[in-house]
């Protein structure tokens, strides 16, 4: 029975989340609640337990995943930076250069599909990709399972967590459970929603621009600041990356990418699918310009007419999306 001891932490998180989700509703009914964080839905049969999270976390930080045991998931998804990388492209094994900027993993369990092209349906399946990609781990999950099965501590933990030895099922599921617990709901913005902190004038001005004149929330909407839609944002006229078309072979999907979450955006630079912008100012200058003409550019991308002061306010607001408890949580874990 101890295998399925649901962690107190998990219960606490879920209770906390449901509390937050009730919060905005108060007694009145809104026209659609936008900012409440829903509770995390775990995969059927793969609900969170203490042991499963522990196993997933151990695996996440273990360089055993790469062919030369040089890097772990955390090498590119660095916890201090909301599980993203500070480089344009994260190098894989043997210094092989990656092709896309590493996305943040905070709130990743809420995504409806994975990868920048949205081609992978679950976070559990997503684990197979970096393992196999030649410019990431260049390894194979069958081989990794064999290596892990030789380590007693892993075998014990796996038996406790899943009642079976650490095979491809256990590895992908445990990593999935761990990543689903990476929830970000303690940013200054979240506290503002609960009216626990006040925004500065500039932050408030930036927020009004975000939801008003700049209408960033046309795509970056909801509690996770993304609608997860696959669109082209007019970054180039001619992209090196074919985006979603790589998976669908449909020219309507040429250079179309998933809208990323803006939670923790201040610490997840560089930005865009190719990390071509170093800071948020460049990002906002891009959107303010209305972007380049691309066949598939979303019609919502158009000149915004923001002045310098307004751009600064917008950045101030974006800075409030950074989780202030992020590092504390990491220490606790």
């Amino acid at each position: 029975m101890s295998n399925f001891n649901i962690s107190k932490k998990v219960v606490a998180t879920i209770v906390l989340l449901s509390f937050f989700s009730c919060f905005l509703q108060s007694k009145l009914e809104h026209d659609a609640i936008e900012f409440s964080i829903p509770s995390m839905v775990f995969e059927k049969e793969n609900f969170a337990t203490n042991k499963r999270i522990e196993l997933g976390k151990k695996l996440f930080f273990d360089p055993i995943f790469s062919i030369d045991s040089s890097m772990s998931c955390a090498s590119c998804h660095i916890p201090e930076f909301a599980f993203s990388d500070t480089q344009k492209f994260s190098p894989g094994v043997f210094g092989r250069e990656g092709v896309r900027n590493t996305p943040s993993l905070m709130n990743v369990g809420f995504h409806p599909y994975y990868l920048r092209e949205g081609s992978v349906p679950t976070i559990e399946m997503q684990a197979l990709i970096p393992i196999q990609e030649k410019n990431e781990f260049a390894h194979n999950i069958v081989e990794i399972s064999k290596k892990i099965q030789k380590i007693e501590s892993y075998v014990d933990l796996s038996e406790q967590a899943y009642n079976r030895k650490p095979d491809h099922y256990v590895i992908t599921r445990a990593l999935g459970v761990f990543q689903r617990t990476l929830i970000s709901n303690s940013s200054k913005f979240d506290l503002y929603l609960k009216e626990k902190v006040k925004f500065t004038k500039q932050e408030k001005k930036g927020m009004r621009l975000f939801f008003g004149k700049a209408a960033c929330n046309n795509c970056h909407s909801g509690f996770n600041f993304t609608n997860y839609k696959l669109t082209n944002n007019g970054l180039y006229e001619d992209y090196k990356d074919e985006g979603r078309m790589r998976a669908t072979k449909d020219s309507n999907d040429l250079s179309v990418f998933k809208t990323p979450s803006l939670k923790n955006i201040a610490i997840t630079g560089p930005y865009m699918h190719d990390g071509s912008f170093d800071d948020l100012e460049q990002v906002i200058i891009h959107y303010n310009s209305g972007g380049k003409n691309h066949l598939n550019k979303d019609k919502l991308i158009k000149p915004l007419g923001l002045n310098k002061a307004e751009m600064q306010s917008l950045i101030s607001f974006l800075n409030t999306l950074t989780d202030i408890k992020l590092n504390k949580n990491l220490e606790r874990q």
Partner: peptide, 12 residues
Amino acid sequence: PKSPSMHWGWTP
């Protein structure tokens, strides 16, 4: 999953 792999990642 097989080694060497018979699965194609990102399509998938």
